[in-house]
Design a protein around this nucleic acid. Structure first.
Lengths: 339, 339
DNA sequence: ATCAATAATGCAAGCGCTTACATTTGCGCT
DNA sequence: AGCGCAAATGTAAGCGCTTGCATTATTGAT
């Protein structure tokens, strides 16, 4: 019985159309299973009543939500925006809805969010990076919720991933920097704890140094949260020490932009006085003056590929397969040959 | 009975703790209603089993989800990011979770998202701007889901809103531009259809012109989606006509950044050859060279205030009250006196 | 017409939780 | 010890939907 002025239910529709709730349900979920005439009658009732299925009830009965959750470290800067947008478009096309939450780079928040999303009936999860408590992976396995890692590629890890080789990408860039004659390098990195991308990027620089007979252990590294201001502070820090570097590799474009701006502030010319590089190739990288030499990450492709793979995992209960995407160096104006 | 390897339910916990499901439920939702000893026993069972309540079941039984939905026009650029972040932090503190979806500035998508969010049991909704089909407001009223509008203030509207006066803010800026001696103005606006903010900002420029004895109907306005590229295209367009403007007011910072970059491309100096202004004061505005003279919008305050108000509406069934926040002109380097 | 298939529909049992109401327990009194 | 009352706990009825299975209608071939 419909309560006064409350949302109509399946029952109301069924009654109005003179059929059973089962038929209404089938009309909505699997139309070709019900004959045209009935279907028309049902749809008429749905429209007339302005019926919208109750999601919670549906999830509960079907044990399927057509919802995918994504937990990204931050929404504030644009690092994940483009990739996520592509991801969203792709899953939407496949009938899924995206739920996004952000963990503020805090493992414990991420864990809470994972549980929340699972409790909400997410059919699958998109996670960023591999670094996390194994307990939470067990949990996911137990709940049988497929999860895919993005922004990081690591075939050996427990969860399948779609991403790129952070170490190698950064190593290629550092190689280039060194080839340009720089020997006094420094790095401004994101916080590496619980962040494999950050850690691997540092490693990449070190490996490039080692390969070029520079001493990796001499690389000054400042770790700081990904914020423009922090990039600026780190830059000042680095440049006011004696024997300052001639090239600073930044863990991402946000930090690099901070560094570039601080350089201007300090009257240093980029790249004549100091070379600076970024990572990610977000929009900002092109806008800042001088524009950033950085690593281009195929955000949209990654998002799209992740969507395809995750939906496949959900629908076929496959374990998921990892894919490595290519990155490339984008030469712009913030890196120069040392003269 | 718990099925093999499946998620534990309230029943499992109850059984293990030797109490009824009601007691377990109370332990979780209203702990002080159950005596310490029992509570401990229950909590022990919860931990041991790794129990997480099933959200759909909870929503269904309680008719309350502690979830707030927000539908923003876009996630791609940073316009809404900061405000939304503040909103999220604030509701989180009050025990609510945020669900975000984006409508890509399409009214019909927004409507679909609204229904989706309501069906998902959202306790309240945050919407952007006032322009929308009245039918959907009826729907919300019928479903008794409180909704609050942000980024726009309009006391007369049906829905309560927290925002600022788009017209007046832009009018103040245009006034300033005119006071600087500019008489040949032009505008690059977002698409105004279904977007009251965009429309009101255009109106603001026109009103300022009228007030200063310029002819509003002469204002060239190019409407285009909020994308950097589009700002650039519009700029080229405007500047290649004869008697080009000496100042271009942009509907937001994203378009303005596009214009600034296109100016550089065309060898025009900003602001010596052409003045350009933005709106929003997003991070980008400070980074671009020259930095943007723009309207500062108190994003974080707005987000926070919206959270407070919406939660109040939800918890006290109040109709909600509108608040107008102040904006201000930020003078930076992209606007100059006409000599 | 008749009958076996097959298609369309109905029936009713849950899904996992909350909560009104019923019952039991514990406690301070006399 | 016995009483009354409040606090603690239990019982069970849904919440609105999906879906396996049972039932009825339809179809085509004989």
């Amino acid at each position: 019985m419909s309560k006064l002025r409350s949302a109509p239910t399946l029952d109301d529709v069924a009654k109005r159309a003179g059929v059973s709730t089962a038929t209404v349900s089938r009309c909505l979920n699997d139309p070709q299973r019900v004959v045209q005439a009935t279907r028309d009658r049902v749809m008429e009732a749905v429209d007339a009543l302005g019926y919208t299925p109750n999601f919670a009830a549906r999830v509960m009965a079907a044990k399927r939500s057509f919802t995918i959750g994504a937990i990204i470290p931050t929404m504030e800067n644009a690092i994940f925006a483009r990739g996520l947008q592509a991801f969203q478009e792709e899953i939407h096309q496949r009938g899924y809805t995206l739920l996004v939450s952000s963990s503020a780079y805090k493992p414990e928040v991420e864990e809470e969010q994972i549980r929340t999303l699972v409790a909400r009936g997410a059919d699958g999860l998109l996670l960023i990076g591999h670094d996390r408590d194994p307990g939470i992976c067990d949990y996911l396995a137990r709940q049988k919720v497929p999860a895919l890692v993005a922004w990081s590629y690591e075939a050996e890890e427990r969860m399948p991933s779609i991403g790129f080789d952070n170490r190698q990408a950064m190593m290629a860039l550092a190689d280039q920097v060194i080839a340009f004659g720089h020997t006094r390098l420094a790095m401004i990195s994101g916080l590496s704890e619980g962040n494999d991308r950050a850690r691997l990027r540092i490693q990449g620089v070190r490996d490039a140094m080692a390969q070029n007979s520079l001493r990796p252990e001499n690389l000054p590294v400042i770790e700081t949260p990904y914020e423009i201001e922090n990039g600026a502070d780190a830059f000042r820090n680095l440049m006011t020490q004696d024997a300052p570097p001639t090239a600073i590799l930044c863990g991402n474009d946000v930090l690099a932009v901070g560094a570039v701006r601080q350089a201007a502030q300090m009257g240093l010319r980029v790249p004549e006085d100091i070379s600076i590089t970024g990572f990610d190739d977000i929009e900002l990288a092109k806008i800042v003056q001088p524009s950033l030499t950085t690593i281009h990450v195929p955000h949209r492709d990654m998002g799209r590929a992740a969507a395809v793979e995750l939906v496949k995992m959900i629908e076929t209960s496959s374990p998921g397969k990892s894919t490595r995407l290519d990155t490339g160096i984008v030469m712009r104006d913030s890196l120069a040959r040392l003269i």
